[in-house]
């Protein structure tokens, strides 16, 4: 399934992601990493910290509604894989980001911006294995 090349939307959306990361650092001194925020929601020992994370996630889920208000439609989501693949992928992502200490937002956006060598390595590695995985599923075993 082809998707349209949308460099301007990608740049603009990316700039907003970056802006949210800078604001989170400026106000709360934290990394805008979806993995870290979600992992902290699964701990219940610090109510103030938990509430902050919950507010961030609730705000995130309102993103598509803000998009609807601006564009008159919900953002397109097409999952070209089966529900079984969605679940398997989710489990693998959960384990991987736990050990890897972050995902696209934490390592890819925030870590690289801080000049963290760890994040540069992590981003190079997960981009590479994702490309290899798609090559295998779409061109070697699937397709």
């Amino acid at each position: 399934m082809e998707t349209e090349f949308t460099p301007w939307a990608a740049l603009g959306g990316g700039a907003l992601i970056g802006l949210s990361a800078v604001l989170l650092m400026a106000f709360y001194g934290r990394i805008m990493g979806a993995t870290g925020i979600l992992a902290g929601l699964l701990r219940f020992n610090d109510p103030a910290d938990w509430a902050l994370r919950a507010a961030l996630v609730i705000g995130m889920t309102a993103g598509p509604l803000a998009y609807l208000a601006l564009n008159g439609a919900i953002p397109a989501i097409d999952l070209p894989v089966s529900n079984l693949e969605v679940v398997i992928g989710g489990l693998i992502v959960g384990v991987g980001v736990s050990y890897g200490g972050g995902c696209t937002s934490g390592h890819g956006v925030c870590g690289i911006a801080r000049g963290s060598l760890r994040s540069i390595v992590a981003t190079g590695v997960f981009m590479t294995t994702a490309i290899v995985t798609v090559f295998v599923t779409r061109h070697l075993i699937g397709g």
């Binding site: 894989v81 992928g89 997960f126 590479t128 798609v134």
Partner: peptide, 17 residues
């Protein structure tokens, strides 16, 4: 860990963010 994350990302197409 990062290599594993990439495999899951390549299967489902979603990252946490």
């Amino acid at each position: 860990g990062s290599a594993t994350f990439g495999i899951g990302w390549g299967i489902a197409g979603f990252c946490p963010g």
